[in-house]
Computed example of a mutant assay.
Amino acid sequence: MSRKGRARRISDCTGGGGPRSHARAPHQRRVEGAQQTFVIGVLASAADFERARAWRLSDAPDYERYLTDTARLLAEARRRFDTVRARMFHPQDFAEFCVLHGLDPAEPAARDRYLVNPPLQTQLLAYQGEELAGDFVPRLVRARENGLTLCHADLLLDGGLYGGAGESDDEHRRWVRAAYQRGAEVFRRMLVGAGAGVYELRLRVDAPGGKLSAAARILQWEDGVVRINDEDLELLCAVLCAGLALELPAVAVLHGSQGSAAAGGHFRPAAWAWSSDGPDWEPSARPVRLDGVAAQPGYSLGTVC
Results as ranks from 00 to 15, higher is better:
145 E>R: 08
71 A>W: 03
128 Q>H: 10
95 A>N: 07
236 L>N: 01
217 R>L: 07
209 G>Y: 01
42 V>Y: 10
117 N>V: 00
26 P>I: 06
295 A>H: 10
38 F>M: 04
91 P>R: 03
269 P>H: 13
194 A>V: 04
148 L>V: 07
218 I>G: 00
152 H>Q: 11
196 A>S: 14
207 A>Y: 00
230 D>G: 15
239 V>D: 02
132 L>T: 05
183 G>P: 01
13 C>M: 01
66 Y>C: 02
182 R>I: 00
185 E>F: 08
78 R>S: 12
256 G>W: 08
59 D>T: 12
225 V>L: 10
31 V>A: 11
222 E>L: 14
265 G>R: 03
90 H>G: 06
263 A>P: 02
39 V>M: 00
79 R>G: 15
305 C>M: 01
257 S>R: 15
282 E>V: 13
107 E>K: 15
27 H>Q: 13
269 P>N: 10
99 V>A: 15
89 F>M: 08
239 V>C: 02
295 A>T: 09
3 R>C: 01
143 A>Y: 06
117 N>E: 10
181 Q>S: 12
115 L>Q: 09
7 A>C: 06
227 R>D: 15
89 F>V: 01
70 T>N: 02
82 D>S: 14
24 R>W: 04
260 S>V: 11
159 G>H: 00
171 E>C: 07
253 V>W: 13
189 R>E: 05
258 Q>G: 10
144 R>A: 08
156 L>H: 03
128 Q>E: 10
41 G>W: 04
144 R>K: 15
240 L>I: 01
30 R>V: 12
119 P>V: 11
71 A>L: 09
5 G>F: 05
22 H>R: 13
148 L>W: 11
237 C>I: 03
283 P>I: 07
299 Y>Q: 09
127 Y>I: 10
286 R>L: 07
241 C>R: 00
201 L>Q: 00
57 L>P: 04
117 N>S: 09
242 A>G: 04
292 G>M: 07
14 T>H: 11
229 N>I: 00
223 D>P: 04
278 G>T: 04
84 V>W: 08
76 E>C: 01
152 H>P: 10
19 P>S: 09
262 A>L: 15
204 R>V: 11
208 P>C: 05
133 A>W: 00
79 R>P: 06
